[in-house]
Design a protein around this nucleic acid. Structure first.
Lengths: 215, 215
DNA sequence: GCGCGCGATTTGTGATCACATGACCCCATG
DNA sequence: CATGGGGTCATGTGATCACAAATCGCGCGC
């Protein structure tokens, strides 16, 4: 009796659409206010409307897309107060996640964070905003995975998702010259086992980018 | 030029299903581990499978339902670590929400909270667990609405949703004799404008109920 | 030249159907 | 009596269709 060598050959169409769209939104590949049509998405992924509807509905439920009164979906155009609120949420959640990850952060993790940070520096000099956003989130997610708090991490990712299109607009117009300063503070605090310093560094890193969007 | 007297006569079927199911889950009317079938839900609400699928998918996206590997949906059966994590999330979010509501809390709000609290006492003596859960959440939501932080409130409600079926199991087996003690502390702190006291009272109230579920 | 209204087209909603898969149950067999 | 196999039924997935409403554009009239 042989076990099938591939346990799941078909990852379900609606899930494929969901993952693809989610990644594009979170990484800022879609501008704020851009409308997405059911038939358009369906045609792009070469499926029917049904899975496209489910994927979009799921993203709307997570706040990644807004649903107009007539049912049209589009990426959200965030007002200043909403951006401020989401930044506060990032602060709350990510400071807690970092704090929980601290006692579990061993050397291999710090090495990984430093290598991600090096790649971020490359993306900065290459002026690649989308790659920068993606790797910045990878930096944070790598750290927070050590917190062993999946529900909390999921909530943080939901916030990232909601900020995705806006971050694109931000990094698209701001000229980045410095590699991430606060990331080095985070790594230093991790090395030193300095929890208050880590909390401050994470809060600063999270707040920094969004603050210039408000001014 | 006349404006139509009823701007939205048809609240959309899938949304009606979503709201109905969401309320039932959040208020603990569905036991943990209970399976929900597409055709069953569709028949219960007298619609076809399509809107039922969207409503269930949306609830899955919010964490209110879990999706097995074969696509079946059921209310989640939470492990102790997950419950602990969700309680920590409630603490984080709701302490912040209460803190933001404090400077805006005027007398009318406190009166409303006290009247809700009185009804909770009635529900306790009546041993009505579902009514108790519903009014307890109403108490918290009424306070947090003053925080003017819709995204944060939405996240808190998502956590409530995930805890809904588990809370039912909790209050179903615990014999409640005392009316909510910490609610009175919250009201007292609001009256006194005592922010540290308010934070402590909210954290205690949120943690109290879940702690006995872990032991 | 400008605004308004009407019509064609786009778009979301919901129903129905065909299909594949996983679950469950009953019975035969050791 | 326990156990395994086979078949039936239940269930999720995705496609297609009909319909209604909203949107956009074009042309007419002022």
């Amino acid at each position: 009796m042989l076990i099938s060598p591939r346990p799941d050959p078909a990852p379900a169409a609606h899930d494929r659409l969901y993952r693809g769209l989610r990644a594009r939104i979170m990484h800022g590949e879609i501008a704020p206010g851009q409308a997405l049509t059911l038939r358009g998405i369906a045609a792009e992924y070469e499926v029917s409307m049904t899975p496209a509807r489910e994927a979009l509905r799921r993203l709307v439920a997570e706040g990644a897309l807004t649903l107009s009164s007539s049912g049209r979906v589009a990426t959200p155009e965030l007002g200043n107060d909403r951006i401020e609120e989401l930044a506060a949420l990032r602060s709350l959640l990510e400071v807690e996640l970092a704090s929980r990850a601290l006692p579990r952060a061993h050397l291999a993790l710090i090495d990984r964070l430093q290598s991600i940070n090096a790649r971020i520096a490359e993306d900065v000099t290459r002026r690649d905003a989308i790659a920068y956003i993606r790797r910045n989130l990878e930096f944070h997610r790598t750290l927070y995975l050590r917190a062993q708090a999946p529900a909390m991490l999921a909530m943080a990712e939901t916030v990232w998702l909601q900020l995705g299109p806006t971050m694109r607009a931000l990094y698209g117009r701001v000229r980045h010259k410095e590699p991430p300063h606060f990331h080095r503070l985070i790594i230093a605090a991790l090395k030193a086992g300095d929890e208050p310093g880590l909390r401050l560094a994470v809060r600063s890193d999270v707040t920094q980018g969004l603050r210039m969007l408000l001014g």
